[in-house]
Design a binder for these strands. Structure first.
Lengths: 105, 105
DNA sequence: AGGTTATATAACGATTTTGTTATACAGATA
DNA sequence: TATCTGTATAACAAAATCGTTATATAACCT
């Protein structure tokens, strides 16, 4: 159970097609930041800021491996069940935008 | 099932504490626009625009009765189940902000 | 050390959001 | 008709959002 105030803040983060799609991709498992840069038609700094926004909302966790940073859904977030529920309502698009680097996934 | 694009637009509408609270109140049934004006600490035109935004997103239906306009959740919206699911995660606040008019509810 | 790759931050501009006040419109009623 | 109440729209300002380019930082690799 959440306050309207708290939930609205999370929904504001989810209320963006780029971020929502990033989250959907992370539902399949950890994603390297570089794969988002490859996948979306916006600059690397823009991707970085979207990730920061979701991290600050507590929705993401990160893991550094060498020079790569892998992001995943934060299953311990109090909003995790809601996020999953919403993501399950999104069509899986055929977005073959594989990471071009050696990030090992 | 929805596209990330479409769902994000709805979530953007929901990503505002005022609108989310208005929706929560409508979950209890139809609400007169005037009751929102009484309930929230923003101007009547601001309330009117929040309502318009939700109407345009297809989330609300309106019914005119004399000079009053009553709003309710649009149960036929493809996003209705999602909206309900989200509203069910919101604490019921004790918001005794009854409508001061004769809007007959 | 010096260069390359991956990511983050800073600074800026265009656009959107969200509020305000002023005004218009709709319906009820004296 | 004139006026009151309820609601919507217009015009505007402040703040937030989201993109860009330039630059900084971190880690790897000669």
């Amino acid at each position: 159970m959440h306050t309207a105030e708290a939930l609205s803040k999370v929904l504001k983060v989810l209320g963006d097609a780029t971020r929502l799609t990033m989250l959907k991709q992370m539902q399949d498992g950890e994603q390297c930041a570089c794969s988002f840069v490859d996948c979306f038609d916006i600059s690397q700094p823009a991707i970085s800021r979207h990730l920061k926004m979701m991290r600050q909302a507590g929705l993401l966790l990160e893991r550094r491996d060498k020079q790569w940073i892998h992001y995943r859904l934060n299953e311990t977030s109090p909003f995790y069940p809601i996020v999953i529920e919403l993501l399950n309502n999104i069509e899986t698009e055929v977005t073959d935008c594989g990471c071009e680097t050696d990030c090992a996934i």
